Amino acid sequence: MTRFLVATALLLAGTSLAGAQSLEKQIRDFVYAPGFGAADIDALEVSLIDQWYDLTVMTPGGTVGPIEKAMLIADKAIEGIRTRTAIDYGEVITEDGTPVSFIELRHFNLAAAIHAETEAAYGPENTAPLEDFGTGEHMAWRFVFQPVMNNAAVLLEASSRVISVKEAAKSDCTGRPCLDLYAGFDAAEWEEVGGQVPDWPRLYSDHSDEVATPAHAIAELAVFGYWANAESGQYQWTGGEHPEGARGAEPYRFIGIDRHLGQEASIDAIWRETKLNDDELAAITFRRAEIAGSVHLMRAGEPHPGRP
Score class of each variant (00 low, 15 high):
T59C: 13
Y122K: 12
I114Q: 14
L276I: 02
A13Y: 02
E302N: 10
G90Q: 14
Y182H: 12
E125M: 06
G62E: 08
P129T: 02
G225Q: 14
V295C: 08
R28K: 01
E250G: 08
G233K: 00
L105W: 06
K170V: 05
A222D: 04
A282W: 04
E220L: 00
V193F: 04
R84M: 12
D278K: 02
M58I: 14
H216Q: 14
V57W: 07
A9I: 15
A43F: 07
A292L: 02
R253S: 09
E91R: 11
G239E: 12
K69M: 03
F145T: 05
T56W: 08
A121K: 08
W237N: 12
R307E: 10
L156R: 13
R161N: 05
A246R: 05
A120G: 09
D180H: 07
H107P: 12
F254D: 03
Q26H: 06
D268H: 06
R202P: 15
F4S: 09
V148C: 03
A230S: 01
A168G: 01
G35Q: 09
S16I: 09
P129N: 04
R161V: 01
E244A: 07
P201E: 04
G14A: 04
E250Q: 05
I267Q: 03
L179N: 00
P124A: 15
S47C: 03
A120C: 06
E131I: 14
D29M: 05
K69F: 02
P198M: 15
L72Q: 06
W200Q: 00
F4E: 13
F30C: 08
M298Q: 11
W52L: 03
D180G: 05
W190L: 00
H296Q: 10
N109P: 08
I41M: 03
S159E: 05
F30M: 03
W237K: 07
A183N: 09
A292H: 01
L130T: 03
E264V: 14
A140Q: 13
A7M: 00
E91V: 15
I291G: 00
R288S: 15
G14I: 09
L130A: 02
E79R: 07
P303W: 01
W271H: 02
F286S: 11
Y182Q: 07
S22T: 06
H216V: 09
A43R: 02
D40H: 13
R84I: 08
N109S: 02
E250D: 02
V154R: 00
A33V: 10
R247K: 06
E231F: 13
Y53D: 03
G194F: 02
N229I: 04
V154M: 03
A230T: 12
R202K: 15
T127N: 01
W200H: 11
R161G: 15
G239T: 01
V144D: 10
A215P: 04
I218E: 12
S232D: 08
L110S: 04
T83I: 07
Q196G: 13
L5Y: 08
F30D: 11
R161Q: 09
G293T: 04
I73D: 02
E79H: 13
I93S: 06
P124R: 00
M58N: 15
A215D: 03
E95F: 09
L203I: 11
L17T: 09
A9G: 10
E192S: 11
V31H: 13
A228G: 06
Y226D: 12
M298R: 11
P129R: 00
R202E: 15
T238L: 05
A112M: 14
E280D: 05
P308V: 10
